[in-house]
Design a protein around this nucleic acid. Sequence first.
DNA 1: TGCACATATGTGCTTTTGCACATATAGTTT
DNA 2: AAACTATATGTGCAAAAGCACATATGTGCA
Lengths: 189, 189
Amino acid sequence: MALKHAILVSLGDTPMSGYDLAKHFDESIGFFWRATHPQIYRELAKLREKGLVSAEEVQQQGRPNRTVYSLTDAGRQEILDWSRQPSTPDSVKDDFLVRLYGLDHVDIPALREDLQLRMEGHRDRCERFSAIAAGIEPRSITELGRLRGLQIGLRYEREWAAWCEETLEALKDEHLVSLEDPFMQLAGQ
Amino acid sequence: MALKHAILVSLGDTPMSGYDLAKHFDESIGFFWRATHPQIYRELAKLREKGLVSAEEVQQQGRPNRTVYSLTDAGRQEILDWSRQPSTPDSVKDDFLVRLYGLDHVDIPALREDLQLRMEGHRDRCERFSAIAAGIEPRSITELGRLRGLQIGLRYEREWAAWCEETLEALKDEHLVSLEDPFMQLAGQ
DNA sequence: TGCACATATGTGCTTTTGCACATATAGTTT
DNA sequence: AAACTATATGTGCAAAAGCACATATGTGCA
């Protein structure tokens, strides 16, 4: 369970409300661990009970009040303890790759559309990450960590984007007919 | 829920028992979707109820009997329907990257050990994938899909391995002291 | 006036996942 | 004889995740 730790680590930067955290999970740390707002609010309540975070009600005018959470010393210790456990291997679960694995049973035009969308997503993130990374000159341990995180994100997105492009090419109709049709297969040999 | 579909797709290749499937999930399709044997047996029971797979008891001597499952026409249709839905974005959840994000709060020597282990794992898989990929000359739609899957796996592992190496270098003590110590920071400018 | 939107925080319910444990057969090793 | 390994199939239970829905305030816009 590292949602807990993703929250603690985020609060290690600066105190935040659940709402802030939810936005934060949509942007920066969300690349490493995704979470939705109900998950976050529930987890915050548990962390508060355990004393790993402290909460402070903040009055606001013109808007609902916010509950701002801060990391406690116990929370800091919890991060340290957790960081000494071996990390759990990332559990891969990719719908799209399962389809590719069973390519002869799926709707290929639909898969191509999906692939196109994926490629665009990877390209977008690729540009976003490289823009952010270009602006970081690591002056602290934290910045170094963030930069390394961006680097793997960037590598990942870049490879995926390139692979999508290759795969779109490989899945063009004119390349597939010869595979499906036994006559063409013979002709191609 | 694509465990269901990962099983259906696997049975599309050839009929298998739960035990076979569990091994299969440890090897090939496990790169795209991980599952343990209790998950698989439970899912198989559900798929059987829905008529997406059929089961046949096979007597064996010297070993317990096996229940072999086959894909039905309804199952084939289910794969097709599913493949027409947009794929769900892969949900990233990586402990290790969360630690990197909060680098100033974690135990860095422990993280380095973890990083070393990861790197070895990525290198191993990299070699395994490239050995398998080298032996595939795609002659059918299925083989083309499998090859493309291996290609992204290979790219992924290669980038991760390289990144791990870079990061191990960046996290060496001699590079970190200057970041932690304000005096050294001034001296470095 | 009505509506959408951004802020802000939650509840309820279902599905999925993970992990430990249970059970049975038969061969191999110590 | 006891322990270990491989084959083969499950149950029980708790944690985690996902998603729809609920609620409240104030602003801007048509």
